[in-house]
Design a binder for these strands. Structure first.
Lengths: 251, 251
DNA sequence: GACTTTTGTTCGTATATCGCACAATATGGA
DNA sequence: TCCATATTGTGCGATATACGAACAAAAGTC
C-alpha cells in the first residue's frame, strides 16, 4: 500500500472514538487528546465532526457518544453470517445444558462475543455481543489461541497484561503455552475460576468444512453448580454435537 | 462550527463503514462507491485505511469488516451508564414476567436496543444490544416518539418508510400521530403483532429525576401466550415498578 | 486577587487528500 | 480467442487538512 492510500484523518478519528470507554463516558478535548496522544487541535476537529454527524453530543465542554455510533459495529454483527447461523444452535445448546452458551472470535489479545444465549445471570459481568474478555484467561480464548501457530499465540500472550483476576488465574507465559498445547491435543479448554471466582467454563473450536478454526463455542456454569472437573463429562458431548452440526454451516 | 473544523476524510470513512450491512457483508471498491455515492478513489483509500488498521480484511478483491470494528460501538455501550444500571432491573423484570424485557433509545427513525434480558426465544428476529427496529411499529418506538414534541415525531414518521409488516401494522401517518397522543396520555404503548405475526409487546418510558424521557422499557410476549388486550393488566404493574425504581438511577 | 496551570481556539504554512482522467487489469459472452 | 464491458489502480493539479505555536479564556492554587 502506498502512503497516499492511507487517510490519516480517518485513522485519527477512529482513534478518538476508541478513546471513549468504560471509565471515560464523557471526554473534554484535552482529555481525549491526552488519551489518544494526538494534538488538541486535531482531536477537536474529529470530535466536532462526530458531533456534526450525530455520532456524538457536545454540551460546549464535554463530548459523549450517541447510540448512532452503534451503527458502525452493527454493520459487522448483521453482516457476518456467523451470527445468524449459530444463534439457533446456541439457543438449543443453552437450553439442553441449562447454562449460558456463547460464540466468540479473537481480536488481538481479547475474545469478542458475537452471539450468546443466556440463562439466568450468574456472573457479575454482563456479557453480550460485542463484549470483550482477555483471551488468556477465558475458555474460548484458550481454544482460539491454541488454533494459532505457537509463535503467534506466544506473541499475543506476551502483549497481554497477564493479571491474576483470582488466585486460580494462570499468569505464567510458559505455563500458558503448555496449556495451549494440551488444549490443542484434547480439542477443548476448561477454565476453573480464572476470570471470576465461582465461574467455570468449557469451550471447543468451531471448525469449517476446510478445517479452519473460525470461532469458539462455550458453556459457562457456576462452580457451585458444576465442579470444573465434571464440566467435560457433562457438557463436552453437547458441545461436540453443536460443533459437528455447525461444521458444514460456518464459512 | 467553522468549515475547517470538519474533517471530511473522517466523515467519508464512517459512511464507508456504514455501507456494510445485512445484505452487504463483503464489498468491492466499486460496490462500496456505489452505495456511499463517494468517488472510487476515495472509497478505496478509506477501505485500505480500515484494512491497514485491522478494522477490515482485504483479499485483493473484497473487503469485509473484522470484529475489531465492534470496539467502536462497544465504546458507547460500556461508556453509557444506562446499560449497567438497568441490566439487573431488567433481569428481575424478565424473570418475574417470564418474558423477554428490553431497554432501548431512539436513533433517527429507529429504536436501538441498549440492554436486554431474554427468555426463551420466540421471535424470528434475534434481538441484542445494538439491534435496531423501526420506531413506528415497535412499542418502545411509540413511547419514545410520544415523548417528543408532536412536530418532531411527525417529522420522523414522515421520514420513515411506513411498511405493513403484517396485516395489523398501522401505516397511516395521521393514525400513528393520534396513537402517539393516546400513548402520551396513558403512559404506555401496546403493539399487537404490528412487527411480526404472533408477537405482542408493551412499553413504558424511563423517566429521570428531572422528568425527561431517557429511554424506553418493554416486555415482549407471544400472542399465543398472552392476548394483546391482557398485556396491560398483566405486565403494566411490573413495568411501572421497574420504571419507578429506575427513576432516581438514570441520568 | 494575583499567580500558575490547564484548556480551548485561531492562524499561517507545509503537507496530505480529493476527484478527475487515464491506464491497467479482470470478467463475460459470442 | 477475441472483443466489449466492468472494475480497479495511478498520476496530477487544485483544494483541504494537520501541525505547532501563539493567543485567549477558564480553572485552580496560594
Amino acid at each position: 500500500m502506498r502512503e497516499t492510500d492511507f487517510v490519516s484523518g480517518f485513522a485519527r478519528g477512529l482513534t478518538v472514538i476508541e478513546a471513549f470507554g468504560e471509565a471515560q463516558p464523557r471526554l473534554s478535548i484535552a482529555e481525549a487528546a491526552k488519551i489518544t496522544g494526538l494534538d488538541r487541535a486535531t482531536v477537536r476537529r474529529s470530535l466536532l465532526t462526530l458531533s456534526e454527524l450525530g455520532y456524538a453530543d457536545y454540551d460546549g465542554k464535554f463530548f459523549a457518544l450517541t447510540p448512532k455510533i452503534l451503527r458502525l459495529g452493527h454493520a459487522y454483527l448483521s453482516a457476518t453470517p456467523l451470527t445468524a447461523i449459530v444463534q439457533p444452535h446456541l439457543d438449543q445448546l443453552s437450553e439442553k445444558a441449562g447454562q449460558s452458551a456463547s460464540v466468540s472470535v479473537l481480536d488481538g489479545t481479547e475474545v469478542v462475543y458475537v452471539a450468546r444465549a443466556s440463562q439466568r445471570r450468574v456472573m457479575s459481568i454482563n456479557l453480550m455481543p460485542g463484549s470483550r474478555l482477555p483471551a488468556y484467561c477465558a475458555s474460548m480464548g484458550r481454544v482460539l489461541l491454541a488454533a494459532l501457530p505457537e509463535a503467534e499465540a506466544r506473541d499475543i500472550l506476551s502483549r497481554t497484561e497477564l493479571k491474576a483476576n483470582t488466585p486460580h488465574t494462570k499468569t505464567d507465559l510458559e505455563e500458558l503455552v503448555a496449556e495451549l498445547r494440551r488444549v490443542r491435543d484434547q480439542g477443548y479448554a476448561v477454565i476453573d475460576q480464572e476470570l471470576e471466582l465461582g465461574l467455570c467454563s468449557i469451550a471447543v473450536p468451531l471448525i469449517n468444512a476446510r478445517g479452519r478454526v473460525v470461532a469458539a463455542l462455550n458453556i459457562g456454569a457456576p462452580a457451585a453448580h458444576v465442579a470444573a472437573d465434571e464440566l467435560a463429562e457433562r457438557y463436552l458431548p453437547l458441545l461436540k454435537d453443536t460443533q459437528a452440526a455447525l461444521r458444514p454451516l460456518v464459512q
